[in-house]
Structure formats: structure tokens, C-alpha cells
Design a protein around this nucleic acid. Structure first.
Lengths: 155, 155
DNA sequence: GGCATATGGTTTTATAATGCAACCACACAA
DNA sequence: TTGTGTGGTTGCATTATAAAACCATATGCC
């Protein structure tokens, strides 16, 4: 590799996101964290991954402000990894990945779980894109614009 | 590695999605494809990636049914890579990644573009989750249920 | 306290993936 | 027919990943 390319300085927000969570394990670790896992051993046993790379990923996620280490919680002197608001903010990404799989996977019968509305127990609707005024948008209804330059100092 | 772990047989739909597009480049290639790029050289120059890994990724995306090779299009005898419906279905994933970056990035001023409603030119709203009956849902309003067993043969 | 064991990692060593550069085949142009 | 652009493939060198071994500290139990 000579060094796996980093997207950190890229101007594209998608690339910037992938820089933080675009590897094989990060999003799955976050998924487990959203399920309430907090301990090193929980992640390791649920995900079945090597401990060294779990350690590396946890460090990276902490560095990116997605997880934070909490000193205790249940009495024991061990450490815990908890989601920050930034970490919890990945929820729509996971939902989008899930729905893509549900819609397009070649073997959907192998998917074990469905995401439901807790109150009614019914599957949730597909994620929708809306305009500021509420109109439902398709991809074709959108376009990219250059970001307006920030004012140098607040006037 | 001994072999990078594949999530292909995993029961979790998120893992299954990541198996197809969870590496460093695939989603960026799809992003370019959504912008209308079709040719090998276009992807290579826009993404600035090594040609051998671009070739490998394109092959993988074609194998996963995300891209398809089209024989021509503009007269020349070369090949093109076009998105399938499955490929275009990744749009919400990219939007979710973009919005996460816009909301939580440490240096949002470095983000060059904003996604706008084509008609009004105004930024689109955040992706929303809704129940079947239309109620707006937060992550806490949702839960996972085991998928109902498929009926063995249609009765 | 003292011993066993669980927890939470780090180190070692192998193999696979990545990246750069060089090379090659074919299409197309002059 | 010679040249050039497009679309790749083929070497390496380097890095990331993974499995297993190892280790330090905590905790449980007597």
C-alpha cells in the first residue's frame, strides 16, 4: 500500500465520513454500541473479531469522537466505551444500509431481523428525503451546489 | 490477515451491505457514478486512485450487481460502467453519510458542496424515519424483531 | 492474604490487500 | 505505419489484518 489513502482532507463530505467509519469493522462496532454494548469483551465476543484489531478500531473511534471511554458504570474498575452524540448520529446511516440490504439483497430470507416501530411492532417506512418546505424528493429532484463561503468574522 | 473476513453469510443486513460496499473506495465510485461518470478513465482521474485497485473494485461492484458493463454509448468501442437499480438504491446511504458529516464534522467549513432541492435551491431536510402510519420516529422509538419465518411454499 | 480465573488488552508472526510504477493490448488518428 | 490515448494487467514494496500467544491487572473465592 505504501499507506492507505486517507480522505481526511477531502472536500467531499461522503469521503470525510468514510475516513472515520469506512472500514470493515467500525460501523459494526457502532451497531453493537447502539444495542447497548459497552465493554471490550462484549464487542469481541459478539463480533467475533481479533482482539488486536478491535483495540485499534476502538482507539480510532475514540479519536474520531464517536466513542468515549467512561471510567466505570457498574462498580467494576474496568473501562467502558460509550457512544457520543456524534456516534449516536450515525443511526440514519445504519438504517440506510439496512434498508438497502432489505430491498436489494439477493437472499433476503437470510436476514434475521427487521427494524420495527416499537409502539406498533410494524416495519418502519423507507427513509425519505424532503425539501425544506416538505415536498418529497427523489434523487433526480436534488443537485449539488458549492457551499457559500463562510463570512470571515461575524459582522 | 489470513483472509479478510467476509460478512456475506451474516444474518445482519448491515453486515451484508458492508460486504458489498464497505471498503474504502466502493461508495466513492458509486458517488461518481451517480454524478454521471461511466468510463474507467473518468473514475480514475476524478478519484485519483491506482488503476489496478479501480479495476478490482469495478469488477467487485459488477459482481455484486451494483454496476453493469454497457457495450458502448457514444460511438467509441470502449466499455462503460453504469449503475443498476440496486446501485442507484444506495442514494439514501450516501445522503446519510453526507448529512452525518455536515452535522458532526469538526471542520464543516472544509466541506465544499451542499445537497439542495433542485427546484428551490435550498438545502434538503435531514432524512427522517417514519412509522407505517406516518409518525416521526426517533431511534428510541424503534426496536428489532426477528424476521417472521418464510412460508415454505406458497400455500 | 493467597490462589485461580476473568478481563482487557499488547506482541509476534503470517498472509492478504493496497498502492505505485512499469508494462501491454487494442482502438483510433495522422 | 507510426504515434497516441484508453483501458487495463503485472511486478514489487509496504501496510493492514488476523490468529494465536503472551501479559498485566482485577476480581472472585476460600
Amino acid at each position: 500500500m505504501v499507506k492507505r489513502t486517507s480522505f481526511e482532507g477531502d472536500a467531499c463530505p461522503i469521503a470525510r465520513s468514510l475516513d472515520a467509519l469506512g472500514d470493515w469493522w467500525s460501523l459494526l462496532i457502532i451497531r453493537e454500541a447502539l444495542f447497548g454494548r459497552r465493554r471490550f469483551g462484549e464487542f469481541q465476543s459478539k463480533l467475533g473479531m481479533a482482539k488486536n484489531i478491535l483495540a485499534a478500531r476502538l482507539r480510532s473511534l475514540v479519536d474520531h469522537g464517536i466513542l468515549a471511554t467512561a471510567p466505570a458504570s457498574d462498580g467494576s474498575a474496568y473501562q467502558e466505551y460509550v457512544l457520543t452524540p456524534k456516534g449516536r448520529g450515525t443511526f440514519p446511516i445504519l438504517v440506510a444500509l439496512r434498508q438497502w440490504s432489505e430491498e436489494f439483497d439477493d437472499h433476503p430470507e437470510e436476514i434475521a431481523t427487521i427494524l420495527v416501530d416499537r409502539e406498533k411492532g410494524r416495519p418502519i417506512k423507507k427513509l425519505e428525503m424532503h425539501a425544506e418546505d416538505g415536498r418529497l424528493l427523489t434523487p433526480a429532484d436534488t443537485t449539488l451546489k458549492p457551499r457559500p463561503a463562510p463570512r470571515r468574522r461575524s459582522a
